[in-house]
Simulated scan of single mutants.
Amino acid sequence: MPKKKGQKKNIPRDFTINDSANAPKPVARVKKSTTEVTWDQIADDDLDIVEEINEDGTKNFVYKKKRNNSKCEDNIDDRPGNVYPEIIWYWISQFIKPDDIGNFAGINRATYFITRCESFWRGIYRRYCEKHPKLPVKLQIDTFRAYGLRQRVIRALYHTHDVFIKKVAQQAAQDSKPHDLVKRRCVSVWYCKGAAHWSIYFKLKKMQATESVQSHDFFEELGRIDANPEENTQVLQVNCQHFYEVPPLMGMTLSSVSVVLSQGFRHHRLHLGFNTGSHNVSKDILPECTVVLDKVVNIFVFDWWHPKYPHFDNNLPINVVDEESLPVLKKDFFATRDADL
């Protein structure tokens, strides 16, 4: 029946199945509102069925206007709460443990900016790292240098802080996962001869969706405490009984990893597939270059903060890209030998 102007819709106190069947909207989620209107004032799409509880405990269902969330959302700054001065958070930051820094930085903007200050990381270093007997000499921080301070303190904590030391020990007890390195770009490859085996290192960097080269002022760059050239980079260390030559792989993307038992079932054989460009990384595309390392004794994967990650130097920023950091190969790799003629 058409609605008559000025006529109000009376909703019975006892809610029946017929009311649900003929309701303009399905009764799925009850929403609260404060404005009660009549049928002739709003359209059907603006109605919602709301459950109300009377003083005697009985329930009543009424049609009410929907709440406009876009207009009624409270501003974050207008919400009730206490706003403390930044100096309070600064004093609290002096009692934050290294494993709670992430939670402290997520409280508000003030705590986040405190964790980006040079004084904060020098305080962490002074409380947990300075004069520690297990701190390596290369991680001892001088007084005047700020570049890369954050990453040096984090690396030092993995030598001195008990929580981080236990984390490294737990990872050492687990098997390394070289398969997680797929789709990373090879930055450099180098070798190291040990007492009983050869170690081959592959430095692989995670490819970002959008990589942009930002130019900073030199003096501004010197003050970056969050500078970390090794961020998003991992090193794959493969220990073999014999030496294996590896072709130039810089700039190529690791597309496949396979670990199988070698002949004799005493060691493993590692297959690494590489392709040019991330768009060629797929299960259906064969690798353009395959590296096979036989008689593998063990395999390790190290993050930049790991104590065994091969940090060669911690120099100040220079105008070179990371692919040129250390492209180490055999000196005579490209030389033609008489035996090959």
Rank of each mutant, 00 (worst) to 15 (best):
S199R: 10
P247C: 06
E230D: 14
S256L: 07
L249V: 00
A227Q: 08
V189Q: 03
E220T: 13
P229Y: 11
P247H: 07
A227H: 11
V235A: 08
L249H: 01
Q208W: 02
L204M: 10
P247Q: 07
M207V: 15
T253V: 15
H242I: 08
M250Y: 00
Y191Q: 03
E245P: 03
L249T: 00
S188P: 02
E231N: 12
G194D: 06
S256P: 02
Y244G: 00
Q234S: 10
Q241D: 10
W190N: 02
W198M: 13
R224K: 14
C240R: 07
W198K: 05
H216Y: 15
M207N: 04
V235P: 03
T210C: 08
N239W: 03
L222A: 08
T233C: 14
L204R: 04
C186W: 00
V259A: 07
L222W: 08
C240Q: 04
E220A: 13
T233H: 03
A195G: 09
E211W: 03
E231K: 15
N228D: 15
A195Y: 13
V189W: 00
E221V: 07
K205C: 09
V257E: 05
D217Q: 14
V246C: 01
T253G: 01
K205D: 06
A195D: 13
I200N: 02
S199W: 04
H216K: 14
F219M: 13
M207K: 05
N228S: 12
C186P: 02
Y191D: 01
R224W: 06
G223K: 15
R224E: 11
G251M: 01
L254F: 03
V238Q: 04
Y191V: 02
I200V: 11
E245L: 10
F202N: 00
H197M: 07
T253L: 04
V260C: 09
L249S: 00
V259M: 09
A227G: 12
E221L: 14
K203V: 06
E230H: 13
H197V: 07
F218H: 14
Y191A: 01
I200H: 04
D226Y: 14
M252N: 04
Q237F: 03
S212P: 02
V187D: 01
L236M: 07
W198H: 09
E221H: 10
Q208R: 05
Q241F: 12
C192M: 09
F219S: 13
V213G: 06
N239R: 13
C240K: 05
S255N: 05
H242D: 13
E220D: 15
R224C: 12
E231W: 14
V260N: 10
T210L: 08
E231G: 02
V213C: 10
L254G: 01
I200E: 03
S188H: 03
P229W: 14
Y201S: 03
P229M: 10
F218D: 10
R224M: 11
V260E: 15
